[in-house]
Amino acid sequence: MSATLEPPGGTRGATPAGPSALARLMMLQRRFQLFQLLALGLLFLWGATTVTDFATALSIKSMLVSAAFLGLAGAGQTLVVLVGGIDFSVPAFISGGAILISQLCGTYHWSAVAAIAVILGAALLLGAINGYVSDRFQVPSLVVTLGMSSMITGGLLLWTKGAATGAAPAFLATVTSVGTRTFGVGIPPLVVLWAVVAIVLGVTLGRTVPGRRVYQTGANPVAAQFSLVRTRRVWTLTFAASGLLGGILGILVGGYTGSGNTTLGDPYLFEGLAAVIVGGTTFGARGDYWKTVIGALLLTVLTTVLIGKGYSNADQQMIFGLLILLVVAGYGRSPRLRDRI
């Protein structure tokens, strides 16, 4: 499925007569992200052989939970990047979800269901505004989402008078904990939830009409309009989905940390974006959510190895940046200009 979506330029380097070994390898790469998986395997092997207790069940489970947080942060961003936009308001949605769930349930004693419904509704609406305004006025989504991000943070500061004090419901801590079992199986519920999100997004993008419209809009909005794709609706719904996913992650992060504050979501912006790009999704219709899943796993394993080796925070960041470049060198670079004429 995804192979048919690649523009023809991608195969130009191959020999025309019969698929050579290299061409077949490139096809496998496009279908199954061979290099990404290879890099993930090698990094894991590196950790398993050099860091003690790296490959224990508990360590793998906690890596999966971290990857789930990161992968969920990159979920909305993947959709938005595919339609050719970028969403810088993801951290605000995360902080917002965490603050609202703690304040509404902890301070105002709402039921969790009501609080979650309000959060998801608000996230959908605000996300939709991001997409609608960007497309209606043809302005960069980067600036619109940056503005939205400030407005959400400002609104929350005003509402909580600068100090969010509530505690998130206890069951959310259980859901996001590494030790919890799902229906008797030893997999944390958060990881199961991530798998569900991944399957829903993967199938929607790859196998359904709405998914196909996302790719059409991202590849060429004008051509998409000529094929009767309502691109404004696609943009609005895509950003709404990104807001919704940010809100869901916010509720979970609130449960994990027990309370919320306005900077809680900040680390997820650049790391979530890194998961998307390291996975191999690029602006405008190339990529899918599976790539982001692999990207999130890759970055989590890398971080865990670096922490396990006892590097300082500063060294971790530097090595993290350099290793991403090294890993992506294998698959994530643009074609040569001379092959594009």
Partner: peptide, 22 residues
């Protein structure tokens, strides 16, 4: 090296922030 600008400068962001702290 034909890296995407966002990726190259994102790595730059991590490396430079780390270097500043170091």
């Amino acid at each position: 090296l034909r890296y995407q600008a966002v990726l190259a400068t994102l790595c730059g962001l991590f490396v430079l922030s780390g270097l500043g702290q170091a």
